[in-house]
Design a protein around this nucleic acid. Structure first.
Lengths: 328, 328
DNA sequence: CCGAAATCTGGGAGCGCTCCCAGAACGGGA
DNA sequence: TCCCGTTCTGGGAGCGCTCCCAGATTTCGG
């Protein structure tokens, strides 16, 4: 190929990587030859010497059922692919379903197959973040990792403020008995949302006691939890669910109990899932977060890290907004 | 590392790749040293000489909205990851959202970054399969590709037989006016399901005229189509929807028209989505297909191809079953 | 018009591995 | 005991690229 262009391998390499000190004439010749020959450089040979792979791992550490069910992860995968390929980086997707997957994953990540990783590992007891600390591989977390707190790069949403906003909105319509259905509490986001609900009630001088019920982010748990809440506190007039799916379940329970949404009970969800929240009946008021924005931040941070910039390890907190529809 | 184990690089290499002609003593020494040193071979150097990357691309050629919405794709991604990593192959996920993505994708695939590809490209006009024919890269399709018919490896479901089974089931409960809501008809699966519906009606001497309405696989289109059908044929007593989501939409329309499921109108879906079909009210009778089985077949075929076996290019058709619940 | 600085080019080394080949060690039958 | 086939080992070449360095060429101020 260098021969075909009539230059040395060195010059060809420089032209292809647009280095400094290449005459425009040589560059043109090389690029022309490459086009004519349909030449594309051998990635393996290149990585061998540059010690860069041009690939980044996206690690989803959640049980299978969750990943398949939650459209958030579909958005994450797709968004990560788009953002990464826009910067010329290949995405390597990895799933970690159970503790047994951890060693294999670690081995792969330290095997020099990737330049860095974007990790979603929200559970408290997840061994992955701890294991990852020992590697010297640039890692950016999506959402505050459950197990490791400080000294890591993370991009999270302001779950607590979002929950506060939701509850304040319910309060602003005159409701005073506001319950919550939480997510799994070993999940920092769930804990933060619970805290935000509590913040707003206390701020208003109200007593949160007995008005919280644990769910697991999925619809069925929302229905179950809401049924329990209605039994325990028949006078409740509002509910904040830590996910849209649970809000949907809660609505079913409310109707089953012969109450109306929003007339008798106001309902607010979290996530503002585009395929779910607006399609509900009535359309769901929900705390809106933008996963694409999160991904963008994560990619940007990782790219700085890969470029060798010293970025102070920190958690970036992205703002959320309240999308008001008819359910509250 | 070879030095540490006290053997030559050749012997170390042989031990690590468990080649023939290595004494068990040498092998033990090498493996022991590797463990002690936390050594893992440099993938780039290895690919450089073997001309194998140990990676396979999974290409999803569908518009973004579809990929994010359809749990089938989540299952595909996750299943493909599991099956591939079980055979020691890395998965590279690629999305092709629009025609503009095609050249970039082709360039990547022919750039020698992967050993083969598993492609999901169901649309009739999709330019990707045609472009892929020119590459000499082993490709296995998931579902019959829309544009290229023969001479390719594909693993499809028996959509036509599945639809036939569904309609026969409706017929067996005494229903005689059975409508269908189709998927996008540029999608071979949708066309096959429509054909199967027609097969069963004709087989029973019934006239399908006016009882079919086009949808797009999503819930909203099911509702819309069903409303139209009920208006056009108020006497209908059964409906076969080409997806579970459309079946859900159809149920809403049926209720909105003051009819009951299954008493007045029997409903059957397709896909038997685990998170949707059993959770519906009433639980949905649906044609069951197993995406994991499809993936397994695809991976197996691709592996044979990579091993250099000559596999006759052909479409494997996987059987489907009918899961009977309460909606019909 | 000269010399030094800036710009450009090609040769050579080497990244870490696998594969080929020649030769050493081993084993068993004549 | 010797010979031949089998099993095992190490050395060397080379995969295709980038990077370093030395030398060639151009540019430009004095």
């Amino acid at each position: 190929m260098a021969a075909y262009a009539g230059v040395s391998r060195s010059t060809a390499s420089r032209a292809l990587n647009d280095d400094a000190y290449v005459s425009s004439r040589a560059k043109e010749k090389v690029l022309g030859a490459a086009r004519e020959l349909g030449y594309s450089p051998n990635q393996a040979a290149r990585s061998l010497v540059t010690r860069r792979t041009g690939a980044v791992a996206v690690v989803l550490s959640e049980p299978e059922s969750k990943v398949l069910d939650d459209p958030y992860f579909a958005t994450v995968m797709h968004g990560a692919y788009r953002e990464l390929s826009a910067t010329g980086v290949q995405m390597l997707l990895m799933f970690v379903d159970s503790r047994e997957d951890v060693p294999r994953t670690i081995r792969f990540l330290e095997g020099g197959h990737v330049d860095g990783a974007m990790v979603f590992a929200p559970h408290q007891g997840d061994p992955l973040p701890t294991a990852l600390r020992l590697l010297r591989l640039p890692v950016v977390y999506g959402g505050r990792p459950g197990s490791v707190r400080r000294g890591v790069h993370a991009v999270d949403f302001d779950n607590r403020a979002g929950a506060r906003m939701a509850v304040r909105h319910l309060l602003s319509t005159g409701r005073r008995r506001i319950a919550t259905v939480t997510g799994m509490l070993d999940h920092p986001a769930a804990a933060d949302r619970l805290a935000g609900w509590q913040d707003a009630l206390i701020e208003f001088g109200l007593d949160p006691a007995g008005l919280s019920e644990a769910g697991d982010f999925l619809m069925a748990s929302g229905e179950r939890a809401m049924t329990a809440l209605l039994e325990r506190a028949p006078d409740l007039d509002g509910v904040f669910a830590a996910s849209d799916a649970m809000a949907a379940g809660a609505m079913r329970a409310i109707r089953a109990a012969g109450r109306r949404v929003p007339d008798d009970v106001g309902v607010i969800g979290f996530d503002d899932q585009p395929t779910l929240a607006p399609a509900m009946n009535p359309p769901l008021t929900s705390v809106h977060q933008d996963p694409r924005e999160q991904i963008r931040h994560m990619v940007r941070t990782l790219m700085s890290l890969l470029a060798g910039d010293t970025v102070r390890p920190d958690t970036t907190v992205l703002p959320v907004t309240l999308t008001v529809r008819d359910s509250a």
